[in-house]
Design a protein around this nucleic acid. Structure first.
Lengths: 161, 161
DNA sequence: ACGCGTTAGTTTATACTTAAACCAATGCCC
DNA sequence: GGGCATTGGTTTAAGTATAAACTAACGCGT
C-alpha cells in the first residue's frame, strides 16, 4: 500500500534483538517525517528554509545582535555556512551586518524590522504546524516522549565510563 | 558550561504549556546529536557519507539490483539526487550501472564486490556506534522509546480524524 | 507508420553543508 | 615597535539536496 521504504527493508533484515538499532530507525523516521513537513511548508509559504528560520530565530531572541561566530556556535554549524546564509538574508533585507568599530574583524548581525515581521509569522506557523502534526497524541503521551528523548540525549552526551 | 545552544534559547522563551513544541525540540536535538556522530565517523573512517551508505544498503539488500527510480523512491529523495550519488559511487567502483536491454530508458544499478565489502564494514560500524551511543539506556528504556516514536509517527501519518 | 501522452533519467540552477585554506586585524611579548 | 601566534570571517572545493526544465524511449491508438 504505502510506497516501499528503505527502512522497512532494513527492519526485515534486522535481528529481533537489535533494540538500539530499531530505536534509532524510529527516531530517524519520526524526525525526517516532521522535518520534511516543516521544510515544504516554509518553502511554499515563504520561499524560505529551516536554516534561514534558525538564523532569524537566533537574532530575534538575542537583544543586541550576534557576531558570525556567535551564530555558528549557537546553530552548531560551520562559520562558512553562516557566511552564506547571512549573505542571502541580507540580500533579502531581512538582516543587517555591520563591521564592529572596536574590532574590525568582527561583524555584528542584527535582524531588520522586515526580518522580525517575517520571523514572527514563520514562528507562529512553526508552532501551529507542530501542534497539528502531533495533535493525535495526548499531552501525557507527548510529555512522556519528551522525557524519554531528553534522557536519551543526556545518556548519549555523557557516555558511560 | 556547555556551549550556548539555540534550542536552550528557544526553550527559555517557550510557554510552559508548549508540550508539542518541546517534544519536537527534544526529537530534533536527539536526532542531530546522533546523526552527527555517525556522519563524522563515516567521513573520517571511510571518507564516505550517510547518503552513500544508504544507497549501498538499498542495493545490498535487494537481490537483483535497482533502477534509479527505485532508489529515489526507497530513499525518499529526488531522482536528480540519485543521479549524482550513484555517479560518484560508480567512479569509486562501488556500484555498476547498465542500461536495461528491455527498456533503454531504464538503468539497472547493482553493488560491486568491493561495494559489498565496504558496505559490510560500514554496516557493522553503524550498528556498533548506535549500540555504544545508546549504551547508557536499558533495553526496556530503549524499547519504550521506540514504541513512543512509532506511535508518534503513526499519529503524524494519519492526521486526526 | 504516425502522432502523442507517459515514463525514466539527466541536466541546470540554486541552496545548504563541511573542512581546509586563506586573509586580515588584534594583541602580546620582548 | 617589530615579530608572531591567535582570532574572526571569508573563500574554495566538493558533496548533498530540491524543483523544474529537458531528453530520450516507450507504447498505444488510430
Amino acid at each position: 500500500m504505502t510506497r516501499p521504504y528503505l527502512f522497512d527493508l532494513i527492519l526485515d533484515h534486522l535481528p529481533e534483538a537489535a533494540h538500539r538499532r530499531r530505536a534509532w530507525l524510529a527516531l530517524l523516521r519520526c524526525f525526517t517525517r516532521i522535518e520534511r513537513e516543516l521544510m515544504q511548508h516554509f518553502a511554499q509559504e515563504y520561499n524560505s528554509s529551516l536554516p534561514r528560520y534558525d538564523v532569524l530565530t537566533a537574532l530575534a531572541l538575542s537583544d543586541n545582535g550576534l557576531t558570525m561566530g556567535d551564530l555558528a556556535t549557537l546553530l552548531r554549524v560551520s562559520k562558512g555556512n553562516i557566511t552564506g546564509v547571512v549573505r542571502r538574508l541580507k540580500e533579502d533585507g531581512l538582516v543587517r551586518k555591520v563591521t564592529s568599530r572596536k574590532d574590525r574583524r568582527v561583524q555584528s548581525v542584527t535582524i531588520s524590522p522586515e526580518g522580525r515581521r517575517l520571523w514572527k509569522r514563520m514562528h507562529d506557523d512553526y508552532d501551529r504546524l507542530i501542534s497539528e502534526l502531533l495533535a493525535g497524541r495526548s499531552d501525557g503521551q507527548v510529555q512522556s516522549l519528551t522525557r524519554a528523548l531528553e534522557r536519551t540525549l543526556a545518556a548519549v552526551n555523557k557516555p558511560n565510563d
